[in-house]
Amino acid sequence: MEFLGHYNYWIVIFLMMTGFYVVISHSNLVRKIIGLNIFQTSVFILYISMGKMPGGTAPIVAEGVTLYSNPLPHVLILTAIVVGVATTALGLALVVRIKEAYGTVEEDEIHAQDESL
């Protein structure tokens, strides 16, 4: 169990780095935002993993249940998800405006246009 004790965290780090890789290696702006979403979801998993109590149940009061998982990370992440989609929408709106202004959503083509000005 010692090995599996950190499995959640390692996968979280892997997902985080995958998202990070997408952000820094791909030049397409829509892909970068998907990369940020992957990164974001990995942070959600990190928080929820920390709140898990072995043998506990969901934090809703029920008869005959004494052990609940920690509700605090759930609250933080619940709001973070909805805020996340709102900020993603803002990022995508910026991408749409960049497309209209530059005619492309590839980062290096945008840089090339800026340098030629």
């Binding site: 969901a58 809703i60 619940l78 709001t79 998800i81 909805v82 989609v85």
Partner: peptide
Amino acid sequence: DFGPGGGFQAGV
């Protein structure tokens, strides 16, 4: 208040 849910989920 009683089960899973709330304003955020309902809104979405």
